[in-house]
Amino acid sequence: MTDIQNIKHKAFLFDATRCIDCRACMIACSVENNIPVDKTRIWVAGVGLMGEYPNLGRVSMVYHCMHCNEPDCLSACPVGAYSQRPDGPVLYDHNKCIGCRYCMNACPFGVPHFDFNKGLLQGAFIDKCTMCPQRIDIGLEPACVATCPTDALMFGERTDLLTEAHSRITAYPTRYINHVYGETENGGTSYLILSHVPFAELGLPNLGSTPVRDISEAAMALTIPFALAWGAVLTGVTVGVHQFNKRKEQLAEAEAKAKPEETK
């Protein structure tokens, strides 16, 4: 992940202190992407009332695909149905998908979801946020961002948004937790989050800065060397055992020959 890549990357910035839980983003997303009412690619999840009277508070969090810089879904998909555009969006191609749902297991955020109630003919596929490429390609913001009335969601270059996020933390150090979620999590995501409550309370997993796919891919890279080495070992053992047995037979034969001569 170089800086040059970062500059090109589009990203979202979400500020939990600004979200008023109006869910207009959910409606905008459904309308823009033509998603049935019982499905959604974006959701606002609240943790309910927090704190004790009289210091009560409510927190809500807008959730959709994190568009990781190093997507685990992309790494996990056996048939390569996922792809990543150079400017950030992680996209899914339902024409390749075989419905194995490994991406759902791989995604640490639990983002991709599957049509469990569709049969073969209706086509059961994965669905997830696309960052509205049809809009950003003509210079518009994604539908959810364009709709947000309080600018809790913003869209732009990832580096610009990171600067913006850090400047907000510097401006209001008591309001925000001093961390931008997604700056380093899972190798960096294109969905950056500012919050006044611990990120775990928003339902965000606690992840390191190395993407979860790294160990899996490192192990995968060992496959062919291991296969060759193990095949060589087995061949070696086969030949070795064969030679050993042959030698033993020869010795036994020689002994058997030698014995009758002795008796003569």
Binding site: S75, C77, P78, V79, A81, K96, Y102, M220
Partner: peptide, 12 residues
């Protein structure tokens, strides 16, 4: 699809 679209980073 296992034979035509192969993603070799996938253990599956």
């Amino acid at each position: 699809h296992y034979f035509i679209y192969q993603n070799f980073t996938s253990f599956l």
